[in-house]
């Protein structure tokens, strides 16, 4: 187990390094001089130089890269050009919206998808299965941001049950925050839940066709007991893979959904960064998102090993 974790940690570190190199290359090398790029064409050389110093963009590329990476490791994500404040502070502030939203959506989609998928597989070919499959077919086809708009139209504009957008801040209390995040989280979760439910269903159906289920039935387990005691845990293995991938879709979806509900999260920050050519913000937030995906996938691989004893011994 230890050697498994160590080898995964190694590839985690390698992925992070390569990802950071790619991001650095795109943001700092392709546009030429980032400071000039940020200030636009009619900036004077002197003001560009001032900016460069202010943002710590002096020195050769390797030096700048190491400076950036070293900064990140110590919690310093650079200085925003637009806001002239440390990016780390901005990110921390925005995470208070994005992180709860993502977790809320993840929880919702799991809570919906797993039971639905198990039900559909256990009742394969019958009414419950067809209903679940019909809904998931629709769920996969609906763009989450449009679904979000429809939710806002119905529950906020017509029924006035929930706010149509904005974020009250944690100081306002937990309930207002939850109210403001409910519609975005549902919009984010449902299409993901549809995919997850389908994976759960097909994985469980595959597992139910395996020999060891027949063995279990020959021991005297009813089909329901065989599902609960033997099939579900095995069927979760491929579901975990998809869950890892889903996380990146949740992040990406979050970026878009925040726009629908005017939520001041990381997504909004990054779009402000783009429109204001604030490369430092873009670079740091993108790195953060990518790192989150990589770390989540690492966690998923470790979770595999916990579920499946066959993986524990492999290097």
């Amino acid at each position: 187990m230890l050697s498994f974790v160590l080898s995964r940690l190694g590839s985690l570190a390698l992925s992070l390094v390569v990802a950071s190199l790619v991001i650095f290359a795109v943001v700092q090398i392709i546009p030429g001089d980032p400071a000039t790029f940020m200030m636009g064409l009619n900036a004077t050389p002197a003001s560009v130089e001032t900016l460069r110093k202010a943002l710590g963009l002096t020195g050769s590329l390797p030096v700048r890269y190491l400076h950036w990476v070293g900064g990140m490791l110590s919690g310093d994500l650079g200085t925003s050009y637009t806001y002239r404040v440390p990016v780390a502070g901005l990110v921390l502030q925005r995470l208070q919206v994005s992180l709860p939203l993502t977790l809320f959506a993840l929880f919702l989609s799991l809570a919906l998808a797993l039971p639905a998928g198990i039900l559909a597989a256990a009742r394969r070919g019958r009414g419950a299965d067809l209903t679940v499959m019909g809904f998931t077919q629709l769920g996969i086809a609906v763009p989450n941001f449009w679904f979000a708009m429809l939710l806002a139209l119905l529950f906020a504009l017509k029924l006035h049950w929930l706010p149509a957008g904005g974020f009250p801040g944690w100081k306002a209390g937990v309930l207002p925050v939850l109210r403001s995040l409910t519609l975005p989280a549902i919009a984010l979760a449902l299409p993901q839940a549809a995919i997850l439910a389908r994976v759960m269903r097909s994985s469980l159906i595959d597992t139910l066709g395996q020999d060891f289920i027949r063995t279990a039935r020959a021991k005297g387990l009813s089909s329901g007991q065989a599902v609960r005691r033997h099939a579900v845990r095995n069927a979760l293995i491929p579901v975990l893979t998809i869950l890892g991938l889903q996380f990146s879709f949740l992040l990406a979806g979050g970026i878009i959904i925040e726009n629908v509900f005017y939520l001041p999260g990381l997504g909004r920050l990054i779009f402000q960064g783009i429109t204001q050519r604030d490369l430092i913000v873009v670079q740091s937030v993108v790195m953060l998102l990518v790192a989150a995906v990589i770390v989540v996938n690492f966690v998923v691989e470790i979770a595999y090993a916990l579920i499946d004893p066959r993986l524990r011994r492999q290097a």
């Binding site: 992925s15 790619v22 795109v26 990406a252 873009v282 993108v286 996938n297």
Partner: peptide, 22 residues
């Protein structure tokens, strides 16, 4: 394979953000 894993860490919207920012 590892290259593929790496690209998977960049959702399409993140790639688009990177390209667009430049």
């Amino acid at each position: 394979q590892r290259g593929g894993d790496l690209v998977f860490a960049f959702p399409a919207i993140v790639i688009a953000i990177l390209i667009t920012s430049v």
